[in-house]
Design a protein around this nucleic acid. Structure first.
Lengths: 371, 371
DNA sequence: TAGCTCTATTGAAACGATTCAATAAGCACT
DNA sequence: AGTGCTTATTGAATCGTTTCAATAGAGCTA
């Protein structure tokens, strides 16, 4: 319809053929070396005449040239991809982390290769193998549960691939890590309940296996000590080790039932994490105890559903999305250091947790004292 | 300590150098062509002597040989990766789909490259570009919300890359799709409430923009007609179009409040999806109406949190993990068809939804009739 | 003994980029 | 007129595989 100078049927539009760099070279009248230099803005581009640059860029655009990532990598050793391994994506708190990682990588035009170990060691190893085959430039491991560190450490550091863990730390200094300050989080949680006037508080501690459990409990104890609050051992239980991400909910349910059977009264419950808290709320509700009217409940993590549940959950927020971004930053720094042959030492980041007050906690004075 | 025939210090263990195929070739005493044939079990491997195979495999294992995915691809045109694009991973019902996709790919030794469009068109396009650069062999798009199909269709089909959508359908027959049978789901939901004896039922319909909204409502209407149940227009609202995955919750909350203000009584509420249902429950609870004692609520999707919330949510289950797996199967079939130069036509799968009865619904006879 | 089919193996040419060293022209100095 | 510097461009090697065509011995048939 519209008359233009272009020939009506161009090859580019019809064929599914791949446009290679050589095509751009011949189309623009320069060599592929020049094309490569211009299109990558390589150091030598300083010497390329502006007119040349323009002609090449125009040709590339016109042909719809897209560099072949594989060919590029084969030569330059850079895959522009990084491996992101989760131990169990089913765990609701993984999603914000994934979002954080994805977003940060997007900014750097890196692509995440996603892996989910399903909490199985052999699966973890197989994925590691696959990621290495794909020559990821770095590795981020989100380890909510246990992992065997030997192989990760060996394989990864041997090949000089930067690695970072989120929610987990490894011995040695080869692998960076991002974690929340669990001790501070524990303190914040108890402090909140204490300030609301609660004194008879039940606790569901995290499983031994988990790296978070210890520090969180330590923070609780320290705060209790500082205000001379007695922690009644009869009101303390601990989740058992398990490989199932949903075990938190079931554990919270079961151990709350146990606590209730003891007939020891408590006006608040401090759960290891949000899932545990949900389990606890379920058990309390089933026993006819209203949350927060008769019992306050506080969680830890601030998983996405905590804001949606009824009642919405007061919790200690981990800045999960931020943590994902930080991990990316760390491995990126390391990649760049390697590229520029600078030295680089792994680091251990601690992010600060934050109290989020919602509907599952209220002042003890408003709490009905009896069952 | 243990005396072996091996020399004490092997090159392999110390260096971070890459073991190439040529290394395996020289170590085993054969040519790299033979090594390639053996290690890939290529057609020509029929003619290779068993002893040769063994020697090559041993050498490869001993050296810790790992094929270079990039070099391999450059030659064979196969990246062994597929692109997985989400429109908003934040939406809780994406996680099971991701799990399903990941698991199916793992079985085929394919690797997923993860992309999240954040519901933004330009981001979607940029990611498409990146995925094509990485030469993914196929594309799976999980489109919970709207998307502009023109470019997807054009770019993808032009390059003969198989594509499948989950929770969305495209015009034309280039792109396969997996969807739940929404009409049946709508019917199941109303049927459940009806069988519980509910007659005064409020409805929160899905936003116009969403492909699911229409059929779901149609199923509801058809069932109502079949049992001569009158749908009171005053008890019907519709979510407004929005790009925010969380809008379901807020919408559910707001429109339930609106319904309550009308003072029209209802004993049950049928929500468009689970998030909407949670919003509705929040509003009902806030208004002093207990769920399910005074009002039953049913959702749709069965997102992971539906089982954990208090009360746990009765809902229509979409087999999300299965759907992810199906999509993988489809694109895999298509990839293989392309490889074997067979013909292949895209298909549209419908999976059946399933009623999951939990605690948010109960018989109308047990429902307190007045507010 | 020529001709054929199997078995067993390999040389060498791709694949599509990057990058180093080489070339060459122009200009400004001593 | 020789030397050195800057600008502008390119030829050719290289990355690590895959794969086609070639080679060659061996056993079988006619």
């Amino acid at each position: 319809m519209v008359p233009t100078g272009d020939p009506p049927l161009k090859r580019e539009s019809s064929a599914s053929s791949t446009v290679t760099m050589r095509d751009v070279a011949t189309a623009s009248g320069f060599s592929s070396a020049t094309v490569s230099i211009v299109l990558n803005n390589a150091p030598l581009a300083r010497y390329i005449a502006p007119a040349t640059k323009k002609r090449i860029e125009d040709a590339a655009k016109k042909l719809g040239y897209r560099p072949n990532a594989m060919a590029r990598f084969l030569r330059s050793k850079r895959s522009h991809s990084i491996g992101v391994m989760f131990f169990d994506i089913t765990d609701p708190y993984c999603t914000p982390i994934l979002r954080g990682i994805e977003n940060a990588l997007y900014q750097s035009s890196y692509v995440p290769i996603f892996a989910d170990a399903h909490n199985q060691k052999n699966r973890f190893e197989r994925y590691l193998e696959m990621l290495l085959e794909h020559h990821v430039e770095a590795l981020i491991v989100v380890a909510n549960w246990l992992l065997v560190d030997i192989h990760l450490l060996a394989d990864v550091s041997k090949r000089n691939i930067p690695a970072a863990t989120i929610c987990w730390e490894l011995d040695g200094d080869t692998v960076s890590s991002v974690m929340v300050d669990n001790e501070m989080g524990g303190r914040l949680a108890l402090e909140h309940l204490y300030q609301l006037g609660h004194r008879k508080i039940a606790y569901i501690r995290g499983p031994k296996m988990l790296i978070d459990s210890g520090p969180r409990w330590k923070g609780i104890q320290k705060f209790a000590q500082s205000v001379k609050l007695e922690i009644d051992p009869a009101l303390v239980t601990q989740l058992t080790d398990s490989f199932d991400a949903n075990s938190g909910f079931e554990g919270g349910y079961r151990f709350t039932e146990e606590l209730l059977q003891k007939k020891k009264r408590f006006t608040a419950l401090l759960a290891f994490d949000d899932l545990t808290a949900f389990g606890a709320i379920r058990a309390l509700t089933k026993a006819g105890i209203k949350v927060p009217e008769q019992c306050s409940v506080i969680g830890f993590d601030d998983v996405p559903l905590s804001a949606l549940s009824a009642p919405s959950l007061t919790t200690i927020r981990q800045p999960l999305e931020t943590m994902g971004g930080l991990a990316v930053q760390m491995v990126m720094d390391s990649i760049n250091a390697g590229l520029e042959k600078r030295d680089w030492t792994s680091s251990r980041q601690r992010v600060t947790p934050e109290l989020v007050i919602r509907d599952s906690t209220r002042a003890a004075s408003q709490t009905a004292a009896d069952d």
